[in-house]
Amino acid sequence: MRKEQFRSAAGRMERSSDFELYMWFFMRVSGIILLFIALFHLYYMHFVVDVAETTFFTIAERWQNPLWRTFDLALLFFSFTHGTNGVRYVLEDYIRHPGMRVAAKTGLYLLYGVLLAMGTYVIFAFDADKWMATKEQISALLPLFS
C-alpha cells in the first residue's frame, strides 16, 4: 500500500470515530472522581497514617480488606488513564510528523498497558493474609538490614 493511501485511510478511520468525544467525556467524569479519591488518598496517607510509619505491612494490612483493594484499583485506573490521556493530548498537539506521532503514541500506549497490567496484577494477586502471618518474623529480621 502506498504511503498516501495509508495516510488517507488512517485519516478516514480517525474521522469516522467518536473516540475523541468519549475521551473528552471520560476526562470530565474521571476528573470529578479523582477530585474525591485522590484527595482522600492524600488525606489518608499523610494525615491518618503518618508517612514516616508507612511500611510494607501498612499496605498488607489494608489489603486484607477487599474494599481497600477496590479503592486502590479505582485510584490506579482513573489517575493513570486520566494522566496518560493528558500526555496523549500533548503528543497530538505538538508532534507534527505523522510517523513520529504514531511512534510516540504507540510507546505511550505500551507503557500504559504494561504498567496498568502490573498494578492490577499486584492488587489482585497480593496474598495479604500470608504476609500478615509472617509479620512478626519479618519485623524481627528487619533491623538486621538497616
Binding site: 480517525e14 474521522r15 467518536d18 475523541e20 468525544l21 475521551m23 473528552w24 497530538e92 498537539d93
Partner: peptide, 9 residues
Amino acid sequence: LNEPDGVWR
C-alpha cells in the same frame, strides 16, 4: 466539528 481537528482540539 466531531472530526479530530474539530471541537475536540
